[in-house]
Design a binder for these strands. Sequence first.
DNA 1: GCCAACGTTGGC
DNA 2: GCCAACGTTGGC
Length: 149
Amino acid sequence: MAFWLMKSEPEELSIHDLQRLGQSRWDGVRNYQARNFLRAMTPGDLFFFYHSSCPEPGIAGIGEITAAPYPDPTALDPHSNYHDAKASEEKNPWSALDVSFVEAFSRVISLAELKHQAGLEELALVRKGSRLSVMPVNAEQWALILALA
DNA sequence: GCCAACGTTGGC
DNA sequence: GCCAACGTTGGC
């Protein structure tokens, strides 16, 4: 079992949306490095649900990977914001997977707090210039962040 | 393969 | 809205 962190704009999908829905498809990733991390995920893996591009950016809860990665259907949908004109049924470079709700933290662990937390220096989220939307979290980092919640 | 121009991300 | 940083595109 592995740990991850994935970013979502809460206006699109927040941890509370996921709580209400129970499960959701995680799609729209259009960066190869992030996609490669998606493809490394297996059912049972847990991820921190990060709220980005919002008034209070930070980790808002936990979700679980429930299905192995499959071709991202939004890449083929001309009406989707994530449509990729170069993708086809035969050759779709993008991946999506299914996630389920695990927990909503009683507070958001803010980005500022994560930046100041000793032991998280290597976390891609807080590294200068890093804009990855999907990233690995090691067991030590996971436990450290969980203890802040 | 180089690299300038452009687009995107995402915090502030 | 600004802008730093990174990624992608496309001419050469």
